[in-house]
Design a protein around this nucleic acid. Structure first.
Lengths: 335, 335
DNA sequence: CCTCGATGTTGAAACGTTTTAACGACTGAG
DNA sequence: CTCAGTCGTTAAAACGTTTCAACATCGAGG
């Protein structure tokens, strides 16, 4: 471990004061070119690396924002993150990604750490409905892909109820009257909303509530989708739904996989609709019908709102985007 | 903006000294239960959040490590990250993810920032071959999925040459003698190594070097795979390769997509082998033959090596795992 | 009654920056 | 020759913690 060269070592080595070195680092224009050269040379020679902790402690501001993501393995979130990063970077900030992996405990730990780090702001797609966890602690927080219930934060969301409605309406129009909704746990708001939308579609079409069966999963990963598929296959074909609406594309892909594995045809034996329209949806075994969300915009907007929080007369805003149904082979009309 | 309550406010409010508050935070056992309660109450009441910058400045250590990833949208890397995070968390560290998005500039910026932040250590899957960028700057660095050329860092890698060899040998055994290698840019070492392995397979089989055509792409994303597919389709079928080895699964999925879109059959018109065996490979339009890497272990091992760097008598180590071919429908034997 | 060790608490000195007000040296105008 | 204004540089005071040696207090053992 090197004895850690500091700004004063550089100063001494270049024959100037600490203040001048600091100026070279932060306001290069204010220091005479000759001196600047000398200082830069010293920095280079000593291998000086500015200590961000000290800088931040004194200067009071940080140069990073963070995004606590629900599941880093879900391409939907990495796409959102990408949008957020682009916006952040344009404003001169770096973005750190944290993965809560749908675990409320982890989420809490990360949020706590980020608050302590005094990052400039935090984006978060929370695990559970209670945004109580996400209390105001001095650092601006923006909710992503989730509407702020109590108005204590800005939020950027997509109308998930509408999304669910679009999906199931589409299935109904294709002649399905026995439909499964695959998703869970219901503690995740996105799942609840999409379910609600699905029910609304039934009502609109004059179908009974029990036309839709909820097949609750423990998570939103591919493996859970496969599990749901096995449960579906286990049903006698007379009672088996003819269509499934999945709360996200990972579930849908898993479902698809177990169907083809068991020799059932999609969409003939089971029509499938996913959610998010991730890039892999189009490349799936059967190209997946899905509800598309404006991922990039979601991220960009979230970052913008976050960075606007420091403005003097800030009012919390709630932006809501509209989803869009993308029809592909997995939900072709019933014969 | 709250006037930011500090440790001394808490101390004053609880009628103790700063030192005691600090003790409550860091060595709860050393302070009398009654006092501890009083301090905790004060913390709660004032909404105190410890300032990590100050803590780190004084204490000299950080509680986070970071992973600078080549492409956060590639599930391969998020899986590696997951392994690294698990290992880190077991050792009491948090993991921050940074996305270089295959951009050397971004990578450099993130590394610089992380050095300045004095994180406990950095994992990185570097963009280009020159690990010169990743100079020693006082913070331990471990190379992930890339072998350290000059031995200045620990590294954890998978034998990519062998992987390429496995893939192409498999194709040759299935009767293919006109093979395309899809991948790029060649500045990425993984691509070069896999290419080298592919060539070696030719040699082993006694095939001429020109049995393998390199179809260089600008990146390793799905879209690039689609592009490569279009280029392949443009060839007269007499000269078109009968098999393609893709440098990763994203490319393979894109390739697959453009094939089916143009009505070409996989594997009949074109056999396809991918690399990484990401979860989506098995769920693809045609289940993808792929070279599997031990993603989770890669991450776990990398984190372990990183955390071991602080040991007094540390020697840089280079761990190399073996890849494994997973055969699926996309490369079924030639008729 | 004195001494000793154990137990809790504390004052003050760091940690490495940024920032502010002040300083001296010039320059050109009056 | 003075004065005002620039320009470049600097000393010193923060920023909010952790840590360390020192200090009370108290009960037990002699």
């Amino acid at each position: 471990m090197k004895p850690s060269v500091g700004i004063r070592d550089v100063a001494h080595h270049a024959g100037v004061s600490n203040a001048t070195v600091s100026n070279v680092l932060n306001r290069p224009d204010v220091v005479a070119p000759a001196t600047r050269q000398r200082v830069l040379a010293a920095i280079e020679e000593l291998g000086f690396v500015r200590n961000e902790s000290a800088r931040q402690l004194r200067a009071g501001r940080s140069r990073v924002i963070a995004y606590v993501v629900l599941d880093a393995a879900n391409p939907f979130f990495t796409d959102v993150a990408r949008g957020a990063e682009d916006a952040a970077r344009e404003a001169g900030f770096a973005l750190f990604l944290c993965n809560s992996a749908s675990d409320a405990g982890r989420e809490h730990e990360y949020l706590e750490l980020l608050h302590e780090q005094r990052v400039e702001g935090i984006l978060v797609t929370p695990v559970d409905g209670e945004s109580a966890q996400i209390a105001e602690r001095g650092t601006p927080v923006v909710l992503v892909d989730r509407e702020s219930t109590d108005g204590t934060h800005c939020s950027v969301a997509v109308d998930d109820v509408l999304g669910g409605e679009l999906a199931v309406t589409h299935l109904i129009e294709n002649g399905h009257t026995r439909i499964a909704m695959v998703g869970g746990p219901l503690s995740i708001q996105q799942v609840r909303d999409r379910y609600e939308g699905a029910m609304r579609a039934l009502t609109n079409a004059g179908l009974p509530q029990d036309a839709l069966t909820l097949l609750e999963t423990r998570g939103l990963q591919v493996a859970e989708g496969r599990g749901a598929g096995e449960r579906l296959i286990g049903l006698p074909s007379s009672r088996r739904p003819t269509a499934a609406f999945c709360a996200n594309d990972l579930l849908a892909l898993g479902l698809l996989q177990s169907m083809t594995q068991q020799g059932l045809k999609v969409p003939d034996d089971l029509a499938v609709v996913g959610y998010d329209d991730i890039e892999f949806a189009a490349a799936a075994a059967v190209p997946l019908t899905s509800v598309r969300q404006p991922r990039d915009q979601l991220g960009r907007t979230a970052a913008s709102l976050l960075l606007a929080e420091n403005e003097p007369d800030h009012e919390h805003r709630h932006v809501k985007f509209q989803p869009e149904l993308v029809v592909r082979a997995s939900s072709a009309a019933k014969r």
